[in-house]
Design a protein around this nucleic acid. Sequence first.
DNA 1: ACCATTATTGAACGATGTTCATTAACATTG
DNA 2: CAATGTTAATGAACATCGTTCAATAATGGT
Lengths: 196, 196
Amino acid sequence: MARPRRYDHDALRTRTIEAAKLLLEEGGPAALTARALASSVKTTPGTIYNLFDSMSAVLQEVNRQALVDLAIAVDAVRETEPRERLLALAEVYVTFMLDRRAVWRALFEGPRISNNFPDWYLAQIDGLIGRITQPVAALKPKGDPRLLAEQLLLSVHGIVALAAIDRLDLITRQKPMDLAHAAVERMIAAIRAGAE
Amino acid sequence: MARPRRYDHDALRTRTIEAAKLLLEEGGPAALTARALASSVKTTPGTIYNLFDSMSAVLQEVNRQALVDLAIAVDAVRETEPRERLLALAEVYVTFMLDRRAVWRALFEGPRISNNFPDWYLAQIDGLIGRITQPVAALKPKGDPRLLAEQLLLSVHGIVALAAIDRLDLITRQKPMDLAHAAVERMIAAIRAGAE
DNA sequence: ACCATTATTGAACGATGTTCATTAACATTG
DNA sequence: CAATGTTAATGAACATCGTTCAATAATGGT
């Protein structure tokens, strides 16, 4: 009896993920179709479905890799005083998301949205909040640092999410990075004022 | 020669918009299809395209009415001191959006997204920001009240946008209304601390 | 009554995600 | 080396989608 073989299988899988990224960046969320993806890696739709459960799964895999990259970028932020650290974290977040806006955007906007978020996804976000909680706690706020960190992430994310889908200008002409800075400074000011 | 006739034409149009709302609320953005909409008002896809340019136009019309309703709700907020007024505005915004989350959601998430925002849309948003600028200005901030109002709207919108697509719990267990309150209080605290 | 104008229809087109029987390729066994 | 059992690739097929359009029906003014 024959045994499993695994060489060009895995290679094709990674090539496919890479092709998916390209399709997203070139044509937006709608460009990531099964047939386009298949022809990008010189194969057929059927094979795509052999590698992934669905097209949503392809998108999720692309996004998983992006989240891992984000975690690496966040960990590269130097240890400094809380304010500088929070500003640096916000900058990393904004820069990272806008650089990969096509990938990020597809997670919220396209026809490939999914409601099934796996555990590793939650874990990654939890880790991200943890890195924000640290400097927030160092500011000795009155309330729970974790809750404040969640609120800060939410603020910056809201800005970036709108910017990623090119709708920030519906509300303001201010730039995403300036807005993110303002959100961080406001959180710090409120904590120092003893309000939270 | 015959002249235009306009009676059941307009009636069908409003019935169609009403049916579109229902479809969105019952089955989410994906449920708003041309054929489903046609059968809801006992007609055919072709007729839908006689009434609207595209399915995106249908969604946009549904949204236009929602925005008008929001403006009415916002105008109903009583004149009080700035803090209470800002809190009340945030409450109206949160309540309104979450009540109509299906309609709202389709604007960002579904397969019917459009990048073409007409003037009335921009005007409505501009008006909304204006109502926020007023109480912010009354707090005598150091910076431009308008810019701060934009930032405040952005904060609350970010919270509501995530909540509307059921993804707020990816980041926090805090409730949308509590988060919105916190955003308002933080803005006020920062202004009073003289930071902005 | 006639006819110009308009609205409705429903079939058709191309594209989508997804499934699945068929076919080809391969590693292991005899 | 040949036979065999397992695995992967294929590409046609299905249902559904938005959208278009020639044909048909309805309508109101002349």
